[in-house]
Simulated assay, not measured.
Amino acid sequence: MELLPGGLKFRQLQVFRAVLRTGSTRRAAAELGISQPAVSQHVKQLEATVGLTLFKRSANRIVPLLEAWELLRNVEMALTSLGRLEASIFAMKNEEKQRIAIAAPSVFGFVTLPKVVAVIHAKTASNVRSISGSYEQIGEHILAGRADLGISRLPLDPRLFEWAPLGSARNVCIFHPDHRFSRQGRVDAEDLAGETIVDIDPQFAAHQMNFNALRFAGAEPDILVEFDCNGHEAGYVSAGLGIAITNEIIAREYAAFHLEARPVEPSALYHYVAIWQKGRTFSGALNTSLEAIIAAFLEPAADVPAPLAAD
C-alpha cells in the first residue's frame, strides 16, 4: 500500500515505528511477526525512499538518529489517521457492535469505570476496552489511536486534545479508621512527623510536594513503601501499615477499603478532564460514553467519608 506518490509504503512506516518503540530490530520483528532481516530491509527501503539516513549502524544494532525521532512524530500522526479511518469504516458498517476504548489510570477501575461501562452496556450494544497508564501515557494512547476517550488531568496541549471538565480535587490524607487522625478535622505537615508513610514513586510531582511540605515543617519522611501507580496505597493503608497522601477524586475510588480521609495542608489543586483527540468526530456510542464518564464523576461516591472541615 502506497501512501505518497514518492512510493512511501504503509508497511515501511509500521516497521519503522515498531523499531523505535521497541528499541531493536529483533524486538520489532517479534512484535510484528516477521523476520529480523525483513525488518532491516524495510528500514533500508524507507531510508532510500525518504532520502535520509535515519539510523547509525554498529555491529548488530542500529541506533536511531535525531532525524528518526523527528520523522516518528509525523509517522505516528499518519498511522493514527489511517487507524481512525479503518475504525470509522468498521463503525459505519457495524455501529451496533462498536468497541469503545477508554484510557485511564488503573485506580479508576475500582469505582468510576464500572459505572461508565454499566451505562454504555445499558444504552448501546458497544463493548469496552479499558487501557491503563500514567497521565502522560493516557495522552499517548489517545494520540496513537489506541483509545477513543481518556481520563486525565490538566494541563494538556490544546493543539492536540479537546476535553470536558470532570471535577477538581485537593489533597487529602487517607488512613485506617483507628488512626489518631480520625479525631482531627485537618492534617498539617507537622502532624505527619513520625508517621509511617506509603508514598508514590519519586518521579511523580505529588511525591516532591509531599516531601517538601514535610521538610519545610522540619520533619524527615519515614517511607515504608513506594508505589508507582495510584491505587496501590489503599491496600497498605487499610492494613494499618501507614498513611498516604492522595486527592479527593482518587480517594473516592477507595470506597471498598473503608478508609477515612482528611484535608491536608499545604495542598495542591488538581483538575480532572475527559479527553479526546482534537477534531475527533463522535459516533452515537462515543457520545454516550463521554456522557457516562461525566455523570460518573458527578455522582457522590458511596461509603467514602467526606473530608471534615478544618477546625
Rank of each mutant, 00 (worst) to 15 (best):
7 G>S: 06
10 F>E: 15
11 R>L: 08
12 Q>N: 05
14 Q>E: 14
14 Q>F: 03
14 Q>V: 11
15 V>F: 05
18 A>R: 00
18 A>L: 04
20 L>Y: 05
23 G>D: 09
34 I>G: 00
34 I>A: 01
36 Q>P: 06
37 P>E: 01
39 V>R: 00
44 K>V: 11
45 Q>K: 14
47 E>P: 11
48 A>W: 07
48 A>V: 10
50 V>D: 07
50 V>G: 08
52 L>T: 12
52 L>W: 09
55 F>A: 12
57 R>K: 15
58 S>I: 12
59 A>K: 15
60 N>W: 09
71 L>P: 07
75 V>S: 05
80 T>Q: 10
82 L>C: 02
84 R>K: 14
85 L>Q: 06
89 I>K: 11
92 M>I: 01
92 M>H: 13
93 K>E: 10
98 Q>L: 09
101 A>G: 06
102 I>W: 01
105 P>H: 03
109 G>D: 03
115 K>C: 10
115 K>R: 15
116 V>I: 07
118 A>H: 11
120 I>F: 05
122 A>V: 03
122 A>R: 15
126 S>E: 05
133 G>W: 02
134 S>E: 04
141 H>R: 13
142 I>V: 10
144 A>L: 10
150 G>Y: 00
150 G>H: 02
155 P>Q: 14
155 P>G: 14
158 P>N: 14
159 R>K: 13
160 L>Y: 11
169 A>H: 01
170 R>W: 03
170 R>V: 08
170 R>Y: 08
171 N>M: 08
177 P>Y: 08
180 R>G: 14
182 S>K: 12
182 S>H: 10
192 L>P: 00
196 T>G: 11
198 V>R: 00
200 I>W: 00
203 Q>N: 13
207 H>Y: 15
208 Q>P: 08
209 M>W: 11
211 F>N: 09
215 R>C: 04
218 G>Q: 07
220 E>G: 03
221 P>G: 03
222 D>L: 10
228 D>K: 13
236 Y>N: 02
240 G>T: 12
240 G>S: 09
244 A>P: 03
244 A>H: 03
253 E>R: 08
255 A>P: 06
256 A>D: 15
256 A>K: 15
256 A>G: 14
258 H>A: 14
260 E>R: 14
261 A>Y: 12
263 P>N: 13
271 H>P: 01
273 V>I: 09
277 Q>N: 06
280 R>F: 05
282 F>M: 14
286 L>W: 01
289 S>Q: 07
291 E>A: 15
293 I>T: 06
296 A>E: 00
298 L>F: 09
301 A>S: 15
311 D>P: 15
